[in-house]
Design a binder for these strands. Structure first.
Length: 365
DNA sequence: TAAGCGTGGCT
DNA sequence: TAGCCAAGCTT
C-alpha cells in the first residue's frame, strides 16, 4: 500500500539523474514510433499482429547480424519454408546450405531444432508466453521476450543491444557491459508501458538504430532528450561503458585443394558442433597459432601437392586465420577417401560452404 | 562468469 | 588499417 512521502524526509535524489529531469515517458516514444518507424520485411502492417513464425525466423537471423545482411536470407527462407511445419520437415543439410554465409551457424542448427520442437511439443503452434518460449532451443532471454511481445502482445522486455545503449544513456549507467546487463534489464522493466508491447519493443530498437546510435547520436531529434542523463551531462557517446576487449590471436593452417580431371573438388563435412559445425569444407590441417608442424601429414590423400603462392585471410569472432593453399590435380574417376566426397562446381550452391571456404574455392584455378 | 561462436560494412 | 559494430545463445 503506497503512502504519501514523509515531508520531513526529502526524497533521495537519483545520483544518475539531475533533479529537474523528467522520467522517460513510454508514450512519448510510442508517439515518435508512430511517425518514424522503419518498414522492414518481417514487420506486420501497423495495427496488425505478425505471424509468430516470421517473428521467430527474423529474430534468430538478426542476432548479432545487420538488417541489410539478413533481408535476402529472410526472403529466401520464407519462400522455401513458409511455415514452421515446413521448416521442421526439411533436412538439416538443406537448412545449413541455405544459411551459408550468414555466420554463427549454431543459429541454423538451433533454428531447425526449434522448429521441430514446436511441432513435436506444441503441435506446430508457437507457445505464446515468454517462459515457454525460453524453453525452446536457440531462444534466449532476448528472443523469448521479442516473440512474446511482438507476436503475442505480451508485456516483456526484449533487451537487445539497442535497448542497452538507450538505457545506459538515459540513466548514465557507469557500470561496464557485460556486467551491467542485469542492471539494464531492471531499468528496462521500469519503462514498459501498459499497452502496445510489440510496438514498444520495436520502438526501442528503432530509436537505438536510427537516433541513439553508437557514434554521433542525433539527440536533437530524440523524443527522450529531456529525460536523458547522458545528454544532460553532455556525453552521450560515453555510454554504454564497455569492458576492455582481449586481443584476437592469429592461427595458421593449410587447405588441401584437390581438383579432379572432371573439375570436381574434394570436400568433407565438419563435425556437427563447434566452429562452423556441420558445414562443408575443403580439407585442411588444424588451425593453430604458429601453424601446423608438418602439413603433409594432414593431406587427405596422396597426390602431388603444390603450395600456391597465395593465402586466404579470414577473421572470425575470436581469432584471425591465415590459410595457405596446397593444390593438386587428381585423375578422372579417382575415388574419394573415406569421409570425403567429390563436388563439381555446379553443386557448390547445394553445399553449406561458409565464407572462408568460398574464398578457398576461388583458387580452383 | 567468461569464452566460444561468423560475417561484412564502416570509420 | 585495424578495430568497432550489428535485433545473442550456449556451455
Amino acid at each position: 500500500m503506497p503512502r504519501p512521502a514523509d515531508p520531513a524526509i526529502p526524497p533521495r535524489p537519483d545520483p544518475s539523474r539531475p533533479a529537474a529531469m523528467s522520467a522517460p515517458d513510454p508514450g512519448a516514444l510510442l508517439a515518435w514510433y508512430d511517425r518514424h518507424q522503419r518498414r522492414l520485411p518481417w514487420r506486420a502492417e501497423p495495427g496488425t499482429r505478425q505471424d509468430p513464425y516470421r517473428v521467430f525466423l527474423s529474430e534468430i537471423m538478426l542476432q548479432q547480424t545487420t538488417v541489410v545482411t539478413v533481408a535476402p536470407y529472410y526472403a529466401a527462407f520464407l519462400a522455401r519454408w513458409p511455415s514452421v511445419k515446413a521448416l521442421a520437415a526439411a533436412p538439416l543439410e538443406e537448412v545449413l546450405s541455405a544459411w551459408a554465409g550468414l555466420g554463427y551457424y549454431a543459429r541454423a542448427r538451433n533454428l531447425h531444432a526449434c522448429a521441430r520442437a514446436v511441432v513435436e511439443r506444441h503441435g506446430g503452434a508457437f507457445p505464446d508466453t515468454e517462459a515457454a518460449l525460453l524453453e525452446l532451443p536457440g531462444i534466449g532471454p532476448y528472443t523469448a521476450a521479442a516473440i512474446a511481445s511482438i507476436a503475442f502482445e505480451r508485456r516483456a522486455a526484449a533487451v537487445d543491444g539497442n535497448w542497452e545503449r538507450v538505457l545506459a544513456r538515459l540513466f548514465a549507467v557507469e557500470e561496464a557491459l557485460p556486467r551491467a546487463k542485469a542492471r539494464l534489464r531492471a531499468l528496462a522493466l521500469t519503462l514498459l508501458p501498459e499497452t502496445r508491447h510489440g510496438d514498444f519493443a520495436q520502438a526501442m530498437m528503432d530509436l537505438g538504430a536510427t537516433l541513439c546510435t553508437p557514434r554521433k547520436p542525433a539527440c536533437a531529434l530524440c523524443p527522450w532528450q529531456g529525460s536523458c542523463a547522458a545528454h544532460a551531462a553532455g556525453a552521450p557517446e560515453r555510454y554504454p561503458v564497455k569492458a576492455a576487449k582481449s586481443v584476437r590471436p592469429t592461427r595458421q593452417g593449410v587447405a588441401f585443394l584437390a581438383v579432379r580431371a572432371d573439375g570436381a573438388v574434394l570436400v568433407r563435412s565438419r563435425p556437427p558442433r563447434g566452429l562452423l559445425g556441420g558445414m562443408s569444407e575443403v580439407p585442411s590441417t588444424d588451425w593453430v597459432e604458429g601453424g601446423p608442424a608438418d602439413p603433409a601429414l594432414a593431406a587427405p590423400m596422396a597426390l602431388e601437392w603444390q603450395p600456391l603462392n597465395a593465402a586466404v585471410g579470414h577473421v572470425f569472432s575470436h581469432f584471425a586465420l591465415e590459410l595457405a593453399i596446397w593444390r593438386a590435380r587428381a585423375p578422372a574417376l579417382t575415388p574419394a577417401p573415406k569421409g570425403h566426397r567429390w563436388v563439381r562446381p555446379e553443386g557448390f550452391d547445394a553445399e553449406a560452404f561458409p565464407s572462408v571456404m568460398r574464398k578457398v574455392l576461388e583458387y580452383i584455378g
